[in-house]
Design a protein around this nucleic acid. Structure first.
Lengths: 137, 137
DNA sequence: CTTGACCTTACCATGATGGGAAGGTGCAGA
DNA sequence: TCTGCACCTTCCCATCATGGTAAGGTCAAG
């Protein structure tokens, strides 16, 4: 089948299929006389694997490792699990950082009246104004 | 002061200070006879604002808007709050997506023994294997 | 033979940041 | 004065995953 159908079947754009080929994530596709790339069910399977890994947030290099592990009948499941757990930790860290941002920002937003007046704790917070209402000095 | 000290004081790298100038996020810095950029406390304040906004995950274009709102004494706090809440929603969506990835991946990882044997539900999940143990067919 | 849908390669863009090269400036010490 | 070192300048390239567009080739249906 042509690249467009492969893209439709796998959810990986034709653009990205070509890209993955260019970086060696997938082998060079067979070519028809027309020079059009030609894909079979084996390629579709591989592309589906890649898309699912990508949807789980794995990087291209991690996906490269996963593909190698997929094709290695010798490897232990511990090897795969280790890679997965590294990625879970990465996800946790990203979630933590975004959550910190959200917490800080929502505290500022809660303190902001959000009315027609210009006074705004959000802007003050960003400007680095200390606004302890200590009546200090 | 020179760009290096401005970088040290604000936590924005010299590289990024020049970049922010080139995209018009900050005005062109004054120059000394040596052609070195020269920064004062006003610049430092602005860069600090930018760094704090960046630390909260605002995009450059959002920071551009925030800086405009900062300098606009006419604007209502509602304008600022609206921008902040848009960003909070963006953060929530990112957190949600990462959380979904984490959940899916951790379910696969839990099902994986992680021992010396090659059988691995993580790889099977990525490969798109349906593994209902229904004895179906 | 034309039209339209598909394919090809090649180049450029994103966003935020860093790296490095090649060269100028400025100050302190021998 | 010369030297060394720390700092600065501009310019170009890289990241990561993805998309856009241009200029052109292929192929089947009408």
């Amino acid at each position: 089948m042509q690249i467009g159908e492969a893209a439709r079947l796998t959810g990986v754009s034709a653009k990205m299929i070509r890209h993955y080929e260019s970086i060696g994530l997938i082998p060079s596709a067979d070519r028809r006389d027309s020079n059009y790339r030609d894909y079979g069910h084996h390629d579709i399977h591989r592309l589906g694997f890649i898309r699912r890994a990508r949807d789980l947030g794995f990087s291209i290099e991690q996906i490269r490792d996963l593909l190698r592990l997929w094709g290695d009948t010798q490897r232990s499941s511990a090897d795969v699990k280790a890679l997965a757990q590294t990625h879970i930790s990465d996800l946790d860290e990203k979630i933590r950082l975004l959550g910190e941002m959200r917490t800080t920002l929502s505290h500022l937003a809660e303190a902001c009246d959000g009315d027609h007046r210009p006074d705004c704790p959000i802007i003050k917070g960003l400007a680095g104004d200390e606004q302890h209402d200590h009546g200090h000095h």
